[in-house]
Design a protein around this nucleic acid. Structure first.
Lengths: 227, 227
DNA sequence: CCAAAAGTGTTGTTGTTACACCCATGC
DNA sequence: GCATGGGTGTAACAACAACACTTTTGG
């Protein structure tokens, strides 16, 4: 059987800033179709690279960014999703830490930028569908896996985590109960350092201990944050 | 850029029988490579069909089966997974009801059969990896979505459900607590009919009310069964 | 009357929610 | 000394886990 289907990868990369909220990385297309539309970074897979390698390469080429967490999201394969010819796309889901987030925000003038998920431009192809799938995944996943930490600095004040959950779950969270619950899991380390971002009392810094988390997970612990 | 990657779909289809446990559907390969090895049903996607259409077509062609639940599982794309040329496979996850399960078990003599997940043959390509991914998904998913019902007859005695969960979670479950919890969700209907499978007291039949389930889900109910 | 499977409640323990005041800093 | 954000405990309530005997049928 003769088959003429092309294979591409696309990445939905999330960044977070306690003031800006959740953003995603988009690039502006140079060529037709959808010239000058904003689109997810991505492109055709090379014959000799794995899917994940392809995503990382494209992110490097198109946005100069290194994601800190990457997982496969879903594959999109409707025959009509690309007007030229059939392309199936394997979409990935990525998270970057604030350091990278800030960095790429500088490249602003070019054709790569962060967009708050609250005010998104029209996207090329079916990228809106892909994006919506990714947002759903992020919202769902944060409740039962501690991936939130991948969006924060290695050392962060507790309030950053708190705000992240409030934004993602889109609801008020009781500060005391939230802290009690997170601390009770035992994979957070409280440091002696403090930081003062704006006014007010300086905050102690915390860090996520991945090793401890995996140990606890082995023992059949299960993380879940529902309020 | 010239790309020569082929796109296929593969299906991991689960069946269940309270006595046999969980089985999956395999076909025996007629041609090289991996001639005479057992493999997941699947094949190349046609240029004008969607991915899901491709899976359903292949399952119909290769096993004469109609799955009752189907979702995308994961895409496997390592460059070396097919010895001939590069093929990326989009794997699907399916569940069939006992009626279909019995039916295909008749076709036994041919090159399609059910295998208990406890004693599997060596599989072609990387199908073992795909299968393991699917089993993990099934185990994980059954705890927070009521997909277990898709593996049972439309009307079933409560003990069938009980056994299904015990097998999948691989642990004893307290019958009273389990029933209390499931009933409390309110999406099961108790019928006036009874059934007697072996010896012992006949059992009342139940059925899953999908509509009620979706209503409850809308209201922000969340199903979860952990013990 | 025995074997086999179905049906059924209560209680102690644990986890979850609701709630408000003081503390450390910069200006 | 005031504005800003950080830090902390307790009590009522809800959910979960542990537990065993009775009922209906067939042989």
């Amino acid at each position: 059987m003769k088959q003429s289907i092309k294979v591409s990868v696309d990445a939905v990369v999330f960044g977070y800033d306690p003031d800006e909220g959740i953003s995603i990385l988009l690039i502006k297309r140079k060529f037709e179709p959808f010239q000058k539309f904003w689109a997810l970074p991505g492109g055709l897979v090379k014959d000799d690279e794995s899917l994940e390698e392809a995503v990382r390469r494209e992110l490097q080429e198109e946005a100069g960014i290194d994601v800190n967490y990457l997982e496969q999201l879903y594959s999109f394969g409707k025959p009509e999703r690309d007007p030229r010819n059939r392309v199936i796309s394997i979409a990935y889901f990525g998270l970057v830490r604030p350091a990278d987030y800030q960095l790429s925000a500088q490249t602003d003038a070019e054709d790569v930028a962060w967009f708050s998920i609250k005010k998104l431009p029209r996207l090329a192809f079916d990228h809106k569908v892909i994006l919506d799938t990714a947002i759903k995944r992020l919202r769902g996943k944060i409740a039962y896996e501690p991936i939130g930490f991948e969006l924060l600095d290695k050392k962060f004040p507790f309030s950053d985590l708190e705000k992240l959950y409030q934004i993602l779950l889109d609801q008020e969270i009781d500060r005391r109960n939230f802290k009690k619950k997170i601390i009770s899991y035992g994979f957070l380390e409280e440091l002696d350092e403090v930081i003062q971002k704006k006014s007010g009392r300086p905050a102690r810094l915390f860090q996520f201990n991945k090793k401890k988390y995996f140990e606890l997970k082995e023992k059949g612990y299960n993380f879940d944050i529902f309020f």
